[in-house]
Structure formats: C-alpha cells, structure tokens
Simulated assay, not measured.
Amino acid sequence: MNFTKLDYCQYLLSSQINYTITNLAEDLENISHDKINYYLRNEKLTPSLLWDNVKDLIVVDEDAYIIFDDTVVDKIFQSQYK
C-alpha cells in the first residue's frame, strides 16, 4: 500500500489534536512511521495544496478569523540518568 498526498491531506483535515507522524502511523494499517517520514522528506507539499482541499469547506463570516500557527514548542526533558 502506498502513502499519498490525499492520505496526508485527509489526516491533517481530520486530526483535531495530534498531527504527528507517529500518531498517523498508529491509525494506518500497513503504513509505517518510516514510510510516512520518507514520503514527507521527498514530496513537495505546499500550503496551497492543503488550502485547495479545504477552501470550499470554509464558511465566510466577517466576524471570524482563520489562524495558522506552526509553532513548535520544545519539550522539557530531564533525564532520569545523570
């Protein structure tokens, strides 16, 4: 089974909390984390690709905002081994 742009876009659209490759791989049978990682490293996926897939789903309202945030917060990691 191959992993495609459609698979990835559908995952981004349907996931409400966790957007990690690990989470995606856990939800898909026959697709490993490594296969998804390889795909994403080698495929050009642009924001416009995702927008093209969702723009018809957006309900326009003059009092509404769409906010995109790609912030990555560092995890606080303290080794139990010193």
Rank of each mutant, 00 (worst) to 15 (best):
N2K: 09
N2A: 04
T4D: 07
K5T: 05
L6S: 15
L6F: 06
Y8N: 00
Y8M: 03
C9I: 15
C9H: 11
Q10I: 05
Q10W: 08
Y11E: 05
Y11S: 04
Y11F: 15
L12S: 03
L12F: 07
L13T: 06
S14A: 13
S14Y: 13
S15H: 05
S15V: 10
Q16C: 07
Q16L: 14
I17H: 12
N18S: 13
N18G: 02
N18R: 08
N18I: 07
Y19I: 06
Y19G: 02
Y19W: 05
T20P: 02
T20V: 01
T20F: 00
I21R: 02
I21H: 01
N23S: 10
N23C: 06
N23W: 05
N23A: 09
L24T: 05
L24D: 01
A25P: 03
A25I: 04
A25T: 06
E26W: 02
D27E: 14
D27I: 01
L28C: 13
L28E: 06
N30C: 09
N30M: 11
N30K: 14
I31F: 00
I31M: 05
I31C: 02
S32R: 04
H33W: 01
D34V: 02
K35D: 04
I36L: 01
I36D: 01
I36P: 00
N37W: 00
N37G: 00
Y38E: 10
Y39V: 03
Y39A: 02
L40N: 09
N42T: 14
E43W: 00
E43H: 09
K44Q: 07
K44D: 09
K44A: 07
L45P: 11
L45I: 15
T46C: 05
P47K: 06
S48T: 04
S48M: 11
S48A: 10
S48N: 11
L49A: 04
L49T: 13
L49I: 15
L50W: 12
L50R: 04
W51D: 00
W51Y: 05
D52Q: 03
D52T: 01
D52H: 03
N53H: 05
N53G: 01
V54N: 03
V54R: 08
V54M: 15
D56H: 03
D56G: 04
D56T: 12
L57T: 12
L57Q: 10
I58D: 10
V59N: 14
V60I: 10
V60S: 08
D61Q: 14
D61V: 07
D61P: 02
E62D: 15
E62P: 13
D63A: 08
D63M: 04
D63V: 02
D63E: 13
A64H: 11
A64G: 10
Y65T: 09
I66N: 11
I66K: 11
I66G: 13
I66L: 15
I67K: 14
I67G: 05
F68W: 06
F68C: 05
D69R: 08
D69H: 09
D70P: 00
V72F: 06
V73I: 10
V73R: 06
D74V: 06
D74A: 14
K75A: 11
K75W: 09
I76G: 07
I76M: 11
I76E: 15
I76F: 07
I76W: 10
Q78R: 13
Q78H: 15
Q78P: 03
S79H: 08
S79G: 07
Q80M: 01
Q80H: 00
Q80P: 03
Y81F: 04
K82I: 12
K82R: 10
